[in-house]
């Protein structure tokens, strides 16, 4: 079965704009906002959300990248993964309002690893989770706070996210995984 496009570029932009506004609404006065993207595409999404927040408000926003490879519990079950750099924003994350940004939320294991990775670089005041797509099938008690699009899917299906900055085109598609 060919890939079916479920979100176009305009839909992705609209979803990210909505997530940005929701993040702003959830801030208390005095909160220091830090967006941490989970490589690779989460980092791009975090940058886009930061851009929107800077356009529509004067809330200062720090961005960084949080690699979770070394904290995964499935390293023995998959081919060896090459880690990506973790970039902690200059002000650190201690006492901050940290939003983890991921592309597709699935089993929740990446986020479990991210929470461990976060603990190694500091102690935020709160941690929230934003995901562009939530496809369900959680294996852990993890729930996103900001979701771009709920996309009910079968576990045999693959969700692909392409972003302009990385792939040269932009869409979310769903396809039957090759057996």
């Amino acid at each position: 079965m060919p890939a079916r496009i479920v979100l176009q570029q305009a839909d992705i932009t609209r979803a990210l704009t909505r997530i940005s506004h929701e993040i702003l609404e959830s801030l208390r006065s005095g909160d220091d906002l830090v967006l941490l993207g989970i490589p690779t595409r989460g980092v791009v999404l975090a940058e886009r959300i930061a851009t929107v927040i800077r356009e529509v408000s004067d809330v200062p926003v720090a961005i960084g990248a949080l690699d979770v490879t070394m904290y995964r519990d499935d390293l023995d079950r998959n081919p060896t993964r090459a880690p990506s750099p973790t970039q902690v924003p200059p002000g650190g994350i201690d006492g901050k309002f940290v939003v983890l940004v991921d592309d597709v939320l699935y089993s929740g294991r990446t986020i479990r690893a991210a929470l461990d990775a976060l603990g190694a670089i500091g102690r935020p005041r709160v941690v929230r989770l934003a995901a562009l797509v939530d496809r369900g099938h959680r294996e852990l008690p993890i729930r996103p706070d900001f979701v771009g699009k709920n996309l009910p899917s079968a576990q045999t299906e693959r969700i692909n996210l392409h972003l302009e900055e990385i792939d040269g085109d932009e869409f979310v598609s769903i396809e039957e995984a090759a057996q």
Binding site: D67, M70, Y71, L75, P83, S84, P85, T86, D116, G119, A120, I121, G122
Partner: peptide, 16 residues
């Protein structure tokens, strides 16, 4: 390089 970054962290240990 990624391993070297860990040496600068508060917790210099990975559970890997």
């Amino acid at each position: 390089e990624d391993m070297a970054d860990v040496a600068d962290r508060e917790v210099r240990k990975l559970p890997t």
